[in-house]
């Protein structure tokens, strides 16, 4: 069984927001919903030594997802390959998962009355492809793959570079890793 994860290399992300747009268009998201924003820190420093970092955010597909535990209907689920997703039919829009998620990765769709989120484009993944945000990243700042495969690009990258996870102190065990400067 695979264990899917994503690495975001902030050293080469230029903050173009292509991933944000690709996600919105291909997942046909409402105009006011963003699954994967790209935040910017900086510029910091003093000219000419300035620095700016772009941090793409998305669902962390945690190993210990608080959103799944919080869901009273069983709509929020985690597959064996680690992908956390929402079964629309079962979702009643109670927003328990929105409040439980430390990463702001859950988005209520008030018109439909359900909560939506990034699911690593699991239909594409099941078909052997990569998520839209990964395919569209021209800098290859997003690396997606199977951590259970020791020879996968993502495994080799994580073994060779120092990476961090967001809010590790909360014990959610995110499966999105960041390579920072």
């Amino acid at each position: 069984m695979a264990r899917y994860a994503m690495v975001l290399d902030t050293r080469i992300c230029i903050g173009c927001h292509s991933c944000t747009v690709a996600c919105k268009i291909n997942n046909d998201l409402p105009v006011d919903m963003i699954y994967n924003p790209v935040t910017t820190i900086g510029p910091t420093g003093v000219y000419p030594n300035l620095h700016m970092t772009h941090i793409p955010l998305l669902c962390m597909h945690c190993d210990n997802p608080p959103c799944v535990d919080a869901c009273p209907t069983g709509a929020s689920q985690q597959r064996e390959d680690g992908i956390v997703w929402v079964e629309d039919e079962k979702c009643v829009g109670c927003k328990a998962c929105v409040m439980a998620c430390p990463y702001g990765a859950r988005h209520p769709n008030l018109e439909v009355g359900i909560v939506q989120k990034c699911n690593f484009c699991m239909d594409l993944v099941d078909a052997g492809e990569e998520p839209h945000c990964v395919k569209t990243c021209h800098q290859r700042a997003r690396i997606f793959g199977d951590l259970d495969d020791p020879n996968s690009e993502i495994s080799l990258l994580l073994n060779s570079e120092r990476s961090v996870r967001l809010l590790p102190e909360l014990g959610t065990e995110p499966y999105v890793f960041y390579i920072m400067d």
């Binding site: 535990d69 869901c71 009273p72 069983g74 009643v92 109670c94």
Partner: peptide
Amino acid sequence: RVFMNPKA
């Protein structure tokens, strides 16, 4: 449906 997940 909120009665359906005993773990929540």
